[in-house]
Design a protein around this nucleic acid. Structure first.
Lengths: 153, 153
DNA sequence: TGTGTTTATAGGAATATTTCCTATAAAGAA
DNA sequence: TTCTTTATAGGAAATATTCCTATAAACACA
């Protein structure tokens, strides 16, 4: 049998939208008793299909009103240069996402910050000082249209 | 009193990392009985500081191995053109994130797809056909370095 | 075909958690 | 001071998870 069957996908679809659904709730929605629902969820956790349960909060209400994308280019495109940059960038709590991409720059990173002063400080003191960084180009988010964690199942 | 005090921030920090922590667990970690922890969480939910509880899943194990960023430029930068594009893009489950940004293009969107064939189909049939779209430039994610939902508190 | 094994499910019982209720202590207002 | 408000604590009821046993269907194999 496949790693994830149709029933698993239904469960995952529901849990992705609301991690606080009870096993009974899920069972009711997909016409299954609590035992198989419970066992399937535990199996999906064991297999790593379910990675974690998290709480999403309102950034702005916590004082983080500025979101910025940066295109980062390193001075050398070697494996060691990539690794060194990645180790450093992972440590920065302001960096929510970092992906190495194809194209005219190396990394696209998403940064959250309180305001422009805070961002400027972060940019000058924490981001642009990472060894190997050659060029950084910032794009400021003016309006957040969509931000979903829901992977199609 | 402020909307969110120091105790609230401790609770939010813990819940952001693990939505399945029990109220008792949280109370133990911050030296508080279950009642105030429970009341604070309910208040944070009511006030919208806590937006939702979600389950994060392994994209690749569910068959979504390709992640792509697109820079989208519209043919006109009017309010109505923006609104129309945003309504359409919000409906696409492949689009996990969409932000309107400053700079030489209008939107930066993050797309998840099974593989290149699926992405090509999405690109040709669903993305590039959105009315008002002038230019799309794709950047393929080669390596995911960091992907966090943890907002600094 | 028949038998034993595996797999998925159901439902009750024990355990744990959330939710509700009452009570206490500290801080601030009249 | 005295009353009110706010934050906390802890017990009890309601709810959920977890564990246990049992049943039914699918499958392998002699």
């Amino acid at each position: 049998m496949a790693l994830v069957d149709a029933t698993d996908r239904k469960i995952l679809d529901l849990l992705q939208q609301d991690a606080h659904l009870t096993i009974q709730d899920i069972g009711r929605k997909i016409n299954l008793s609590k035992t198989p629902v419970h066992e399937r969820i535990k199996r999906l956790e064991r297999e790593g299909v379910i990675e974690r349960y998290v709480t999403l909060v309102d950034k702005k209400k916590l004082g983080n009103s500025l979101m910025v994308y940066c295109q980062v280019t390193l001075d050398r495109q070697t494996r060691d240069a990539f690794t060194a940059f990645e180790v450093d960038v992972r440590e920065l709590p302001e960096v929510l996402e970092c992906n190495r991409v194809s194209g005219t720059f190396d990394y696209l990173i998403k940064i959250i910050s309180q305001d422009m002063d805070t961002y400027n400080h972060f940019y000058q003191e924490k981001l642009s000082v990472i060894p190997g960084t050659l060029h950084i180009s910032s794009f400021f988010v003016m309006s957040e249209i969509k931000n979903s964690t829901l992977v199609p199942v």
